[in-house]
Amino acid sequence: MEERLSAVLSPYRGRQDALIPILQKVQEELGYLPDDAMLEIAKTTGLPESRVYAVASFYAQFRFTPRGKHTIMVCRGTACHVRGAEKILEETERTLGIVEGETTEDKQYTLETVACIGCCALAPCIMIDEDVEAKLTPKMVPEILNRRDEA
């Protein structure tokens, strides 16, 4: 991890203004922001560790725990909400046997919700990694997950 981290951080020595892009790049490389990386970012930028944590914890994009191989994001936008997003979330939780924010035991799926993915006209929808599954009914959720597991 150390090598990958220093490769990402090397262009940013002393660049306190670039804290957010740095956090984004590190998370992209490591999948999340482990404690060691947070410390390393503080050293590289010259910022106190508390400042790095303050900024990272402020924004929704950053996470401090590793994720499963795939991320399922259930959209909770207004259009999805009025078209039954709550039921989609419940069905996904039931199918995977985890609740929002958790990762399955086999580390395959992490389940999250998102404020809006901007596919409101195709509500309700979920995003599995970069793919959007649109116009869902609760019935379709296990079918989609089974189809992915088989593929």
């Binding site: 956090l23 402020f58 924004y59």
Partner: peptide
């Protein structure tokens, strides 16, 4: 281009500029 890291309040102008500076919005 500055990719925002996800905070609704950054739609507010002073919060948005602070965010570009690498701070809490």
């Amino acid at each position: 281009i500055f990719p925002g890291a996800g905070a609704f309040v950054c739609g507010e102008s002073t919060a948005l500029t602070l965010s570009i500076e690498g701070k809490r919005g």
